[in-house]
């Protein structure tokens, strides 16, 4: 009996000790890191162009107030992501980052929203090769000396997904060994506005700086908004065939503390307006085809 009581007391002491140790460690972590693990609110990073999505979620307390920016360049760096629970980005950026990482960095992403990629085209500067109908093939075949098309920055998550359909056209069955990287490089170095600029910046340049770009590839809602704004008549937003969807995802960090109630649409409703602002319809879409991440990983290596 005495032994049993002693064992219970030791066990209780161990539990109390463990609880104390845990609270000390948590206090230290709260002091030492920009995370909110102690409060149970996930710490989520966003790519720079999706920062308003993080801001909106943080404002409603759905994620921690500290919302770092994270792009492809550091998304596979263990030191850079160790304090994160998730990353809001464009699919398939987590897969590309995983291809770069020594250990798996990101778990299966959750779809937050999507939209077809379209072309915002200046009314007075339509590429000659796309007069009849706009296809990814005609954009890939347009002469960069004649026409500047705003594609993305291959080093950025937002950019590589905008490049994806054109790069697909410049290869056979997404086999990177068949990619015409010289042609792709020429198209990417064509834009008069900086290559590093996102769809919003390039679309704004097309609208506000006559003669800067003939077209900009971007998600439908964003391009529609630019085309129908107060300067309507400068450009139109046109579908491009075959349809290619851009998808915003939330990728949980592999080994992270989880993403709380962000797993379903209702838990992310605070971000709906920001997602539409980024050009996608919330709670729609699906993950990219399995082979896209590997293909874009190679594209990025070749032209990034």
């Amino acid at each position: 009996m005495r032994q049993r009581v002693t064992a219970i007391l030791v066990a209780l002491a161990l539990v109390v000790g463990a609880a104390y140790l845990r609270s000390v460690l948590h206090d230290d972590q709260a002091d030492g890191n920009a995370t909110n693990h102690g409060s149970g609110t996930p710490v989520v990073a966003c790519t720079p162009d999706l920062q308003p999505v993080c801001d909106a979620l943080a404002a409603k307390g759905a994620i921690a107030a500290h919302t770092p920016t994270l792009d492809l360049d550091r998304a596979s760096d263990p030191a850079a992501i160790k304090d994160l629970d998730g990353w809001i980005t464009w699919d398939p950026a987590p897969g590309i980052a995983d291809a770069d990482a020594t250990d798996r960095a990101w778990d299966q992403p959750l779809v937050m929203g999507s939209a077809p990629m379209v072309l915002l085209v200046a009314d007075n500067a339509r590429p000659a090769s796309c007069r009849a109908k706009v296809t990814w093939g005609c954009l890939a075949g347009s002469a960069p000396t004649e026409t500047a098309i705003g594609l993305g920055d291959p080093r950025a998550a937002e950019g590589i997904v905008r490049i994806a359909p054109v790069a697909t056209e410049l290869s056979t069955d997404r086999d990177y060994t068949t990619l015409n990287s010289n042609k792709l490089q020429a198209l990417l170095s064509g834009p008069l506005v900086a290559v590093g600029e996102d769809a919003m910046a390039q679309g704004t340049a097309l609208i506000t700086q006559n003669g800067s770009l003939a077209g900009v590839v971007g998600p439908k809602l964003l391009m529609d908004r630019l085309a129908s704004g107060p300067r309507a008549g400068r450009a139109t937003s046109e579908p491009v065939t075959p349809r290619f969807d851009a998808t915003v995802v939330l990728a949980p960090r592999a080994g992270g503390d989880g993403i709380g109630n962000l797993g379903d649409c209702s838990g992310r409703a605070a971000a709906d307006a920001a997602l539409r602002g980024a050009g996608v319809e919330p709670c729609t879409g699906k993950l990219a085809a399995d082979d896209l991440a590997g293909f874009l990983y190679q594209v990025r290596k070749k032209v990034g």
Partner: peptide
């Protein structure tokens, strides 16, 4: 000319003052 595309271009960027809001047609890098 406003840098924000949500603001329409209007007077005084008009032919009344000798300028053309639809120009330039070509931009140099």
């Amino acid at each position: 000319r406003p840098g924000n595309p949500d603001v329409a271009i209007g007077s005084p960027i008009s032919s009344k003052y000798g300028v053309d809001p639809d120009q330039p047609s070509k931009l140099l890098q």
